[in-house]
Nucleic acid binder design. Sequence first.
DNA 1: AACGATTGTGCATGCGCATGCACGCCTCTA
DNA 2: TAGAGGCGTGCATGCGCATGCACAATCGTT
Lengths: 335, 335
Amino acid sequence: MSQSRSTAEDVARRAGVAQSTVSRVFSNSSRISEATRQKVLQAARELAYRPNNFARSLVTKQSLLVGIVMERISTAFSPYVLEKLTLKLQESGYNVLLFNVSQALSADDLLPSALDYQVDALITTSSVVSPEMADVYAKFKTPLILFNRRINNQTVNTVSADDYHGGKMAAEAMIKAGVKRAAFISGPENTSTTQDRGQGFFEGWELQDFARPRQIVGDYSYQSGFDVACQLWDDDSTLDGIFAVSDLMAVGAIDALRHKLGLRVPEDVQVIGFDDIPGAARLAYQLTTIRIDVDLMVNKTVELLQRCLTDKTKEVEQIVTPVTYVERKSLVVKI
Amino acid sequence: MSQSRSTAEDVARRAGVAQSTVSRVFSNSSRISEATRQKVLQAARELAYRPNNFARSLVTKQSLLVGIVMERISTAFSPYVLEKLTLKLQESGYNVLLFNVSQALSADDLLPSALDYQVDALITTSSVVSPEMADVYAKFKTPLILFNRRINNQTVNTVSADDYHGGKMAAEAMIKAGVKRAAFISGPENTSTTQDRGQGFFEGWELQDFARPRQIVGDYSYQSGFDVACQLWDDDSTLDGIFAVSDLMAVGAIDALRHKLGLRVPEDVQVIGFDDIPGAARLAYQLTTIRIDVDLMVNKTVELLQRCLTDKTKEVEQIVTPVTYVERKSLVVKI
DNA sequence: AACGATTGTGCATGCGCATGCACGCCTCTA
DNA sequence: TAGAGGCGTGCATGCGCATGCACAATCGTT
């Protein structure tokens, strides 16, 4: 901040009006004669005046700030979510305060400090948010929305994809594609996407009385997909199918299969992912996957957010968006 | 914001002290006896008190907020930059206000509104920042740092890679690799990275008295790399080398060559990129590239920022970080 | 035993703005 | 021509906090 910033008071003096008049011009709330409006705007221009949002928020109790708490900002399709959310929010007149979950700073550390900045609402994609945090936000009457995440034993606003059915669809597709010995590459067990997609997946197999596929844990990154695939085939080279809980891991696995293990995809091993990230469609991969509709999720999120802000007493919503099976070349269903 | 948030006043009342004492405890500035400190903290805990950063900033003239203005947040290695910057900034006690440049909102629109939020400094990776904006920031005494960008005819703080030499190195590598008929896939002409990398690249060729390679304009995206490569070979199928100004476009071009045009990389066409994004090293691509040191750039940026904040009268700095040639399989130098 | 130095706390004020209230002026109607 | 009813503006106040100053209590010193 600068010590030499001009204030509404300065503008008022120069325009020969009261500070309150300047304020009225800039919050264009009430009736101001065109003449004084111009006078004020002129003076403001000359002084390069800009209203101080902090002072304004202090009075109005509205920061027009939305907090976003994310982990692994650069991974998978987090960047797309962030970009679209930010865009949407800006269009709606909000600005974004971004928090990066790291080893040092957990979501539970970050959420309170968002509160210090008076965010009007908070969206998080972090996998680990304690139920207590939800309580804190409830206490502060600040809407909290979990994006692409659930949280156990707690009613919180939630926008997610239909992970359970997506998992099920993946299992069905694999079965129809003729996969006999499948492996499931998951994320950490405490993430809701892994839980839900995995549950749907396993139930899909069991429905057909097939043996439960082996599960191996990755961390959603390309490299972990690669490594875990190597490990899998090291243990059992008769596997013929992979369901990866994220496209990025699927792609890592494909590279391992093709360029490290000397296997062909889909001839030797069929692979299906989840998310449909840009990159899944690349001709180098042509990944069959379960698509989640990020645009829709973002739109629903911002709409929900606005509803929360308009009606503070609104009850919690849990929005689930549909997923679709997208068939490309890495796994194809034989009819 | 909530209407029912407890204030320092509330805490003071409950602890039986003055508001100023509460303030002193939370800004742990001056001497407070251990007894009252505990009394205050206890009361604060009971009331779930958190200091209001806006009110605080209004007095201290320090928001501890840093603005980041970005375009194409999800593209290329922007996400990595954002992630690392945010992390570093958080470690240094700052929080990040994120602005997304879009068609609707240009950097020149966004920069002033960052000022409204009293950011202590601003970092932008946006390619288009008008010199006037730099003046505005100077007037408001708010440090402005361009990341990976230059700006013409203006002295602004700048942290960038040695794009010019990188371009030159790319040319040299291509020549040594035996490329005779090269093409240059650039970004939009008004971006400084395209200008500098391109200039270095062309000068590298001219040094060897080789013909000036053809230039074609992309937009830094995977798809544009793909499309532009198709177009290139459509015009002239005798080309045998590509320098793409970004890895993402290089990768798009490789996919087009291999999977659309039926060419082999590197046997038929050699490809070199720029950036060394994660993904360049994938076995599916093994992209030879010019690496920029993002970590170093981020560190330099945050250090520069702190210097600016400490010494408001400090003069502008232009920091250039070295680049390195990373050889993988898509282009290899014959000795 | 008396006095200056030190430490801990309260009081008052102001940061820059929004907003309820009062008031003066003008227009319209009867 | 007088009164009613807008409309436009100024005044005063408070949002939640930090901080300079004053002052009481405690300590150490001679």
